[in-house]
Design a binder for these strands. Structure first.
Lengths: 235, 235
DNA sequence: CGGTCAGTTCGGCGCCGGCCGAAGCAACCC
DNA sequence: GGGTTGCTTCGGCCGGCGCCGAACTGACCG
C-alpha cells in the first residue's frame, strides 16, 4: 500500500491518454472497430512514423490490442473494460458550454445523441429506449445490479441471437449513457443485440463516426416500443 | 463532435494525472481531508517549490479546490465526482501480481482492506458489510439503481443523522469497492454515515492513510450485523 | 521590532517525448 | 523481376516540463 508506488502506476496509465494524438486515437477506437495505422495517422493528422510509435506505446501499455495481417496492422481497444474506462472518462471530462456551432455540426450531434454505438453495444436514445423496453417486458432484472431473466434468455433464443460467453464476466452489464445520463444494456448481451441488428440491417453506421441510422424497425425486436417508436419517426 | 477537439480535452484531463508526483498527491487526497502544501511535498518526496507548481496545475484544472487560511494553503479534491473518477481509475489500474512484502506492509494492507474511507464514505469490508446490513434491513432499494426507502429515511432520522443535500444529485449512490469488487453506499447518505460514526468515535483514522480502526461497536448503527460483527472481532 | 515558518517566484538545468523526413523492410501485384 | 504500398527504424530537432536552490513575500509570534 505504498502511496508513491500506486501513484506511479496511476501516472503510467494516465500518461497513455495524456497526449492529444493518442487520446484522439482512443476516442476513435471507441466505435469498437479495428483500424489500420494509416487510417489513424490521417485521422489524427500526424505522420505514419509518429502514429506507429504511439500505437506501440498503447499496445505495450495494454490499452490496445493488435492483429497483424499481411502488411496491415489492425489495432483496436483491448477489451470491454478498456472501452468502459474510456466512456467513463469522456463522460467525466468537463462539460464545456456549447459554443455556437454550424448547422451540420448540430445535426451530427443530434444523430450522435439519437443512436450510436458505445464500443460494442447500443447507446444514445436508442440504447436507453431498448433497455427500457426490455425492462418493461420483464427481460431484465435490476434488483441486484442487472441480470437477464429466464424470459430474457428465452427471448434472445427465439430471436436467434447467440450470446458469446466472456469468461466469468456477467452476460449483461449496465453502462452509463454519456448523453442520456441513464444506464443502458452493455456486456455480452448488449454486444450480441448490436451485432444482430447490424447484421440484419436494422441499423447501419453513418460513415465517419459512431452514429447510427435506424433503417428498419426496431420493433423487429418484438418489444413494446413507446420511446423507440417515437425515435423511429424522427430518424 | 470534432474528434480531435475531444481528444485534446481528454488529454488535458489525463495530463493532470500523468505525473507520478501529482498522481501520488491525488491518491493521498482520496482520504477526503484537506492537506497543506508542505505535508504533500513531504509525502511525495519533492521540494516545496515543486509541489506548489503541481498544486497550481491541479487547482486550475479543476481537480482540486483550495482554501487559504493565514499562511497555509489547504487543498482537497474538488468534489465527490472527482473522487469517484479517481477511485474508478485506480480500480482499473493493472492488477499487479503481489510481490513479496514486509510484514508491516502486509498488515497495513489488511487494515486497508478491512476498513477505510473512500473520499467521504466507508469502504473496504466495513463499507460493504454496512451496505449489506442496510439492504437486509430494507433500508435500501436496489431495484432501479439504488435509493433510500422510507424506512431508510426514518432510520437515519432516528439516529439523528442529517443528510446534507447535494443540489440535484441522488442522496445515496453506489460506489464500486476497490478491494471487495462489490458496491458500497456512497453519496450524501454515505458521507453522513461516515461523518456520524467518526464523530461518535465508533471508528477512528489510523494515522497516515485512509485506513480506519473500528473502536466501538458498529452494532451501534442498530443493524443486523453478521459480517460486521465478525469484522469487529478481528480488528 | 526581529525571528520563524508556509508558501511563492525566479532562473536555470536536464531530460524526456512528440514530431518529422529519409531510408529500410516486407508483403502483395503484376 | 520491378513497382507499389503499409509500416517501422533511425537521426535529429525542438519544446515542454519536472526539478531544485536561492531569494522573496506575508502571516504569525514573541
Amino acid at each position: 500500500m505504498n502511496t508513491s508506488t500506486e501513484g506511479q502506476e496511476l501516472a503510467a496509465w494516465a500518461k497513455m491518454l495524456a497526449d492529444s494524438t493518442r487520446a484522439t486515437v482512443c476516442l476513435a477506437l471507441l466505435d469498437g472497430r479495428a483500424w489500420t495505422a494509416t487510417e489513424l495517422a490521417k485521422l489524427a493528422g500526424v505522420s505514419r512514423p509518429t502514429i506507429s510509435e504511439h500505437l506501440n506505446m498503447l499496445v505495450d501499455g495494454g490499452l490496445l490490442s493488435e492483429v497483424r495481417q499481411g502488411r496491415h496492422r489492425y489495432v483496436k481497444l483491448a477489451g470491454p473494460e478498456t472501452a468502459e474506462l474510456l466512456e467513463g472518462l469522456a463522460a467525466l471530462a468537463p462539460r464545456r458550454t456549447e459554443v455556437a456551432n454550424s448547422l451540420s455540426a448540430a445535426s451530427k450531434r443530434d444523430a450522435f445523441a439519437r443512436a450510436r454505438t458505445c464500443y460494442d453495444h447500443f447507446a444514445g436514445k436508442l440504447g436507453v429506449a431498448l433497455t427500457d423496453a426490455m425492462t418493461e417486458r420483464g427481460l431484465l432484472d435490476w434488483s441486484d445490479g442487472v441480470a437477464l431473466t429466464p424470459e430474457g434468455a428465452r427471448w434472445l433464443d427465439e430471436l436467434g441471437i447467440v450470446v458469446e460467453s466472456r469468461h466469468g464476466r456477467p452476460a449483461v452489464r449496465s453502462c452509463l449513457d454519456v448523453t442520456e445520463r441513464r444506464p443502458h444494456v452493455a456486456g455480452a448481451v448488449g454486444a450480441a443485440l448490436c451485432t444482430h441488428a447490424l447484421q440484419q440491417g436494422w441499423v447501419t453506421r453513418i460513415t465517419g463516426g459512431r452514429a447510427l441510422k435506424v433503417t428498419g424497425s426496431v420493433e423487429t425486436f418484438g418489444l413494446p416500443v413507446g420511446v423507440v417508436r417515437e425515435l423511429l419517426s424522427r430518424s
